[in-house]
Measured scan of single mutants.
Amino acid sequence: DETGKELVLVLYDYQEKSPREVTIKKGDILTLLNSTNKDWWKIEVNDRQGFVPAAYLKKLD
Rank of each mutant, 00 (worst) to 15 (best):
Y12L: 11
D13K: 03
K59T: 06
G27D: 06
V45P: 00
T23A: 04
L32W: 01
P53Q: 03
A55H: 14
G27T: 02
F51C: 09
G27E: 02
K17Y: 04
E21R: 04
L7Q: 12
L32P: 00
E21F: 04
R20F: 14
D61Q: 11
V45G: 07
T36E: 12
K58F: 12
D47M: 10
E16P: 09
S35H: 08
K58C: 11
D28E: 13
V10I: 03
N34I: 08
D39N: 12
Y56Q: 04
L30D: 01
V45F: 15
L60F: 09
L60C: 08
T3G: 13
L7E: 07
L33E: 02
D1M: 15
F51A: 02
S18M: 07
K25Q: 09
K58S: 11
D1H: 14
K5H: 14
W41R: 00
N46Y: 10
A55V: 12
W41F: 04
K17C: 09
W41P: 00
K5G: 09
E44T: 08
I24A: 05
K58H: 13
R48C: 05
L32K: 01
Y56P: 01
V22F: 06
E21W: 03
P19T: 09
N34A: 08
Q49H: 09
L30N: 07
P19F: 07
T23W: 03
I43S: 00
D1C: 12
A54D: 01
W40D: 01
N37P: 04
D1R: 03
V22S: 03
I29Q: 04
L11V: 07
I43T: 02
L9H: 05
D47F: 10
S18T: 13
D1N: 14
D1S: 13
P53H: 02
R48V: 07
F51E: 04
I24M: 08
D39S: 11
N46S: 12
Y14T: 00
I24V: 15
V22W: 04
G27Q: 02
V8C: 09
E6L: 14
Y56G: 06
V45H: 13
P53C: 03
V22R: 02
K17M: 10
V52I: 03
P53R: 03
D47G: 15
E21A: 05
V10C: 10
G50I: 07
K17A: 11
T23D: 03
V8R: 01
K5A: 11
W41D: 00
N34W: 06
G4A: 15
K38M: 09
E16A: 15
S18Q: 09
R20P: 06
A55T: 13
T23L: 02
G4S: 15
L9A: 05
T23P: 03
Q49N: 08
K59E: 05
T36Y: 10
D39P: 02
L57A: 01
Y14I: 01
Q49K: 11
T3P: 12
Q15P: 05
L9C: 07
L60Q: 06
Y56I: 13
N37S: 10
L9Y: 10
V52T: 02
T31K: 15
P19I: 09
P53V: 02
K5I: 11
K58Q: 13
D47K: 10
K17P: 03
I29P: 00
L7C: 08
K42W: 11
I29A: 02
A54V: 05
K59R: 13
I24G: 00
E16D: 05
P53A: 02
E2S: 14
E21C: 04
V52G: 02
D1Y: 14
V52M: 01
D47Y: 08
T31E: 11
E6H: 13
E44S: 09
N34F: 06
T23Y: 03
Q15V: 14
L30P: 03
V45E: 04
